[in-house]
Simulated assay, not measured.
Amino acid sequence: MLKDFSVQSTFMGVLIAFVGFASSFAVVLQGLKGVGATDYEAASGLMALSISMGLCGIILSVWTKLPVSVAWSTPGAALMATAGIPLGGFPAAVGAFFVCAALIVLAGLFRPFGRAVAAIPAPLANAMLAGVIINLCFAPFKAVAFDARLGLPILVVWAVVAAFKRLYAVPAALLTFVAVIVFGVELPEGAMASWTQSLAPPIEFVMPVFTLSALVSIALPLFIVTMASQNIPGIAILKVNHYEPKPGPMFAVTGLFSFLSAPFGGHAVNLAAITAAMAAGEDAHPDPARRYWAAIIGGIGYILLGLAAGAVTSFVALAPPILIQSVAGLALIGAFSGSAVAAFKDVETREAAALTFLITASGISILGISGAFWGLIAGVLMLGLAKMAGPKTS
């Protein structure tokens, strides 16, 4: 296993952890507070989620030798932000987290579900991937428009290095981002004092309370959006990159780690979508068999960030979110171009792929479920209608 280790995968793993944590931790905190968590309980939940997804990603990647990136349920957190505090307060929400975790495990053990996920047509999976990451690929240019002084150096360094040695373009952009934050962002007064006070890991055990209202309003919707918006796209992205994952066992393992994070305030962990594309793409390593190290390094990064959740949250919050997103967007340009070409290559499936891509890229959310799921459903229905209509005649 050590013979597969590489510096390139290490750089990508560090970027995965940084982007995965920094790009959406604010959503997680907001979601936990939305169901009744105090500031300290929310920080504890963030820590538990980060450590759980780090351990889960490491175990799955070592076990399968696949670049399995794991994340917290960002759509689930967004849903909780508007769900309201359940009867029984945050302990009732924690009880719902336990129920959601159990449902994820059951979904993984239910074999027909795994077979259905594995049967997603490749053109539709590629179209969904392109739709998922296209908005993030816009971020480098939005960052320049936001503040050219901060965004332009990251874009220019990436472009120059890519022209000579594509392998080092993303690491160079990441280092430039760090330099921009250190030298270009003005820290508010008292920021360092506040940061040093938050170095201790926030740990808060919450005894769960199980209520019917929390089950209906939190557990079931959280399970649905986690499976539809994260786990299913996560498997599809691995398949796009020519891996053959076994969905059921992977889902069950993420459910177990969701169960472990629940008593400390964590809502759910799942297979990643965007960072999965980073770990499974060519920028992680030219050899697909060695890319799993990027996911392992990313998992280690998540654990370290989780232990320092309070301090990291305070520090990363000083940077404009668009700068964090811009580095991720540059890392995903290659993945976008490859998936777009593969999605629209075959004439027979081009219209269905276009439908999947457009619905996914639109960013719509119906019944709390993201466009990635609905895009796949629409594409599959389109393929079914095309087969029923038979071959087209001129």
Rank of each mutant, 00 (worst) to 15 (best):
F138L: 15
T82Y: 02
K142F: 11
M80A: 04
M80Q: 01
S69H: 14
L66F: 15
S69E: 13
V68M: 15
A118V: 00
A81T: 13
V105E: 11
L150F: 04
L150W: 08
A116P: 00
A122N: 02
A78K: 13
A130W: 03
F90Y: 15
V160G: 09
A162P: 00
I154E: 01
V132L: 15
V105A: 08
F98E: 03
P86M: 03
D147G: 11
D147N: 15
P91M: 12
V156K: 03
V117G: 04
L124N: 11
V117F: 07
A93S: 03
T74I: 15
A143P: 02
A127N: 09
K142D: 12
F177S: 05
F113R: 09
K165G: 00
A102T: 08
V161G: 02
C100P: 02
V170N: 07
A139P: 01
I134K: 06
D147T: 01
R115A: 09
L150N: 04
V157M: 06
P171Q: 08
A162N: 12
G89Y: 12
F98C: 11
V68N: 14
A116M: 10
G108Q: 10
L152M: 12
L136R: 10
A78C: 14
L103S: 08
R149G: 15
A148F: 13
G151S: 04
T82A: 11
A139K: 14
P123R: 07
V157A: 11
L175M: 14
A148C: 07
A163E: 04
F141I: 05
V94Q: 12
L129C: 04
I104P: 09
F98T: 03
V68L: 14
P91G: 12
V105K: 11
I154M: 04
A92G: 06
V156M: 05
N126H: 11
Y168F: 10
F110A: 12
P75G: 14
I120T: 08
F90M: 11
L79N: 11
G84L: 02
P153N: 07
L87K: 05
A173E: 05
R149Y: 14
V68C: 14
V157Q: 06
T74A: 14
R149C: 10
A162F: 14
A143W: 07
L175N: 09
V157F: 07
A159D: 01
F141T: 01
V157Y: 05
N126Q: 03
A116V: 00
L103A: 14
L87W: 01
A159N: 03
P171D: 10
I133T: 01
N126Y: 05
L79K: 09
K142C: 01
W72M: 12
A71H: 15
A163P: 00
A101T: 07
V160E: 07
W158Q: 00
A107K: 12
V99H: 04
G88E: 09
P123V: 09
A77I: 05
